[in-house]
Design a protein around this nucleic acid. Structure first.
Lengths: 228, 228
DNA sequence: CGCATGGTTCGATCCTCAACGAAGCATTCC
DNA sequence: GGAATGCTTCGTTGAGGATCGAACCATGCG
C-alpha cells in the first residue's frame, strides 16, 4: 500500500531537461520573463509557456504580470531547497561525468546565491563564524541568534524588530552541495545577503547565480566573519 | 549558459510512478528483492528489473546478491534525504489533493523510519529534548554531542568509541516533512534507533516505514526524552 | 486607431519509453 | 541430473508528451 504523497509527480516535473534548465536559472531567487526562460532552455515560446504552466500547477514557480510581461520566479524557499538538493545529489552521483568543468565552477563554489541567501565557501564561512562565536545556536524552536548574536547583527543594521512580523523560520541550516557543510538560509540569511549587497561588498553576476566580492568587500567580510 | 550538474536526469529517474514507488518502499532503509519491489510497484518482473538497473546507474539504489535473490537498497543516506525532501515538498504542494488520507497517516506522522533513523513526532521530540537539555549542539564541525550529551548516551550504551572509525557525519539535522521541524539523522540517529529497537521499545510495521512503540517503550521514551 | 511586442492556444508530428510475453541464464533443491 | 525459482534480456506494441508553426489574444507605444 502506498504511503505519503506522490513524489513522482513533482520529480517528473523537474525531470524534463527544458523545465530543469528554467528551474536552475531561477534558483538565484530572481524572476524572469517567459522569453528569457525560453532562451535559457533553448526551446520555443509556446513550449516554454506550456512548461511554465505545468511548473506553476505543480507549485514550483509562480507568475507575476507587469504589463505585457509575465515574470516567473520560484514559488517558495522550499522549492529552492529542493532544487539545491537535486543539484547536490546530481553532483555527487556523477562527479566524473561532469561535462561543464569550466572556470565558472570555482566561482559557483566560492560564492553564489542559494535562492535568496549566500551559499558556497563564503556562505559556509559566515555560518561557521557565527556558530563559533556563539552568535548563532540551535534551539528547540530551530536555529536562532543569541543575545550576542543580535548585538553583532545590529552592527549590520539588523534588529529583532526587522524580523518580528513574519512567520517563516528566522534561521535555517541549508546544506551546501558544493562544500558539503551548512550555510545560513531563512529570513536572516536573506537579510545578511541584502546587507552585504547594500554595502556594495558583493555583486551578482548577471544570468548566473555567481556572487563576486569586491576587494573591499572581501576584506570587510573576513573582518566580520573571520575563519578559525 | 548552464551551470552545475544535470538535475533533470536524477529527477526523471524518480519521475516514473513505478520507480518512485520502489524508492519510497526502500526509504525505510531496508533491502528488498526484485520480486518484492515489482509487487510493491504493481509492475511485472522484467519491467522492475529494467527500472532497478536505471536506478542503480543513477546512484539511487545498489544491489546485493544472495544466491538466486538480488536485493536492492537505497544507495546512500543522501539518496534517502532526497526522497524525504521530495516527500516533504510533494506533501506541502498538494495537501488538498491527497488521495490516501487513511488511518495510516497518523501513524507515519507519529513515528517512522527515515532511511535509518527515527522520524515523525517522536523523532522531533527526541531531537528537541536533546537540544533543550544541552546534550546536542551545533558546532563548526556540524552538529555534535556535548560532554553531558555523551554521558546521557552512555546510559543507552553508546560511547564515543562506537563512532570513532567512520567518516560520515555523527549528527545531522534532518527536516521532518510531517511536522516541519528537525529530527536527528546521521550515525547517532541511526544508533539511537537501533538502541530503541534493541530494547524492544519500538518495532517496525512490516512493509511500511511505520514504527510502533510498545506501552513500556512509550513510557521509557518519554522518561528519556521528556517534552518541554 | 494601427502597429509592434509578449505571450497563449491549437493542431499536427515525431520520438521516447514503459509495459509485457517469450526465451534464456543463474542458483537452489530433491 | 532434472525441476523449480528468481531474475535478465530481447523484441514488439502502444501511449504519452515535447516540439513547433500558425493563429489568436493582451498590452504598450506612436
Amino acid at each position: 500500500m502506498r504511503e505519503g504523497p506522490d513524489i513522482s509527480r513533482t520529480a517528473a516535473l523537474i525531470g524534463d531537461p527544458a523545465r530543469a534548465h528554467m528551474l536552475v536559472a531561477l534558483a538565484d531567487g530572481g524572476a524572469r520573463t517567459v522569453s528569457e526562460l525560453a532562451a535559457e532552455a533553448g526551446i520555443g515560446l509556446p513550449t516554454a509557456s506550456a512548461h511554465l504552466a505545468k511548473l506553476e500547477a505543480g507549485g514550483l514557480v509562480m507568475p507575476r504580470k507587469e504589463g505585457r510581461h509575465r515574470y516567473y520566479a520560484l514559488a517558495s524557499e522550499e522549492a529552492g531547497l529542493l532544487i539545491e538538493q537535486l543539484l547536490a545529489f546530481s553532483a555527487a552521483s556523477r562527479p566524473a561525468a561532469r561535462t561543464r568543468p569550466g572556470p565558472r565552477d570555482p566561482e559557483l563554489r566560492r560564492a553564489r546565491v542559494c535562492y535568496n541567501h549566500l551559499a558556497g565557501e563564503r556562505g559556509v564561512q559566515m555560518y561557521d563564524s557565527l556558530i563559533r562565536r556563539g552568535f548563532l545556536m540551535e534551539t528547540t524552536n530551530g536555529m536562532g541568534l543569541t543575545d550576542p548574536g543580535w548585538a553583532f547583527a545590529e552592527g549590520l543594521g539588523l534588529t529583532p524588530a526587522d524580523f518580528a512580523r513574519h512567520r517563516p523560520p528566522l534561521c535555517r541550516a541549508c546544506l551546501d552541495w558544493s562544500v558539503r557543510r551548512s550555510h545560513l538560509g531563512g529570513r536572516l540569511g536573506r537579510a545578511l545577503l541584502t546587507a552585504l549587497e547594500g554595502r556594495g561588498w558583493v555583486m551578482r553576476v548577471p544570468q548566473t547565480r555567481i556572487l563576486r566580492f569586491s576587494r573591499a568587500g572581501e576584506a570587510a567580510f573576513d573582518r566580520l566573519f573571520p575563519c578559525a
